[in-house]
Amino acid sequence: MGQVPEFARSPEAFEAFYRQHVGDVQRFIARRVDDPYTAADLTADVFVAVIDSAHTYRPARGSLLGWVYGVAHNVVATERRRRRRETTIERRVAGRRLLEPADIARIEERIDAESAARKVYRALDGVPEATRRLIELVAVDGLSTAEAAAALGVSPIAARVRLHRARRQLRIDFGGSAHVHA
């Protein structure tokens, strides 16, 4: 690494550097940004970034102003990426209405009412996928074992065997209280 430029070592030198280049940086930003507040913020950000990265400036690679424009380009690019992310988030949220207290209360009631079902779903996490789908069709969706077997493309006998094994395991997991009606 080379020597740190004088403007990064002395407040007086930085002030002179700033006064010499602020107009160039403002014009650079103004060509890319149309909001005056954003332009002012980005101009300040450029000079902060210049100080932070002063140790990377190499006179042999080009002029100081060219290097400052490179820093400014990076600052503007970072701002554009931030704005794109912000716009994406705003679009996702824009289609959703804010919840009223009554809506939140209803959702909390539903969550409380479904606590037993969540326990069952957690217990089913350890059950093989094909058996879990069978249990859901029978116990949650109300299909008969034969209907669930047909929906899954297995024989009714295979479905009954899977349900029997799953019931036995669930009874163990829930201490004898699991009921999956076929």
Rank of each mutant, 00 (worst) to 15 (best):
A40E: 13
L134M: 04
G62F: 02
G66H: 02
V93S: 09
E136K: 06
A49N: 05
E147A: 15
V75T: 08
A44F: 11
T145G: 10
R96K: 14
R118K: 10
P101M: 09
D45E: 14
G66E: 12
A117L: 15
P59V: 04
R92L: 15
A117M: 13
A146P: 06
V127W: 02
G126F: 05
A130F: 03
V75H: 00
A116S: 13
R61H: 06
Y69V: 00
A30L: 06
L99Y: 14
V71N: 01
D41Q: 12
Y69A: 03
V71W: 03
V120S: 04
D35C: 12
R91N: 07
R81E: 08
D125Q: 10
Y121K: 13
E129T: 11
V120I: 15
R122L: 05
R96F: 12
G70Q: 10
T38H: 12
S53E: 11
A117R: 12
T38G: 04
T56P: 02
F47M: 02
E129D: 14
T38M: 12
V140F: 15
A40W: 04
D45Q: 11
Y37G: 13
G142T: 07
L42R: 01
A39T: 06
E109I: 07
R83F: 11
Y121T: 13
F28L: 07
V48G: 11
G95E: 06
I89V: 15
D35V: 04
R83E: 13
A49C: 05
A94N: 04
R91S: 13
G126H: 12
V46S: 01
T43F: 01
D34R: 11
I29M: 03
S53N: 12
A39F: 00
S115V: 10
A123N: 03
T87D: 10
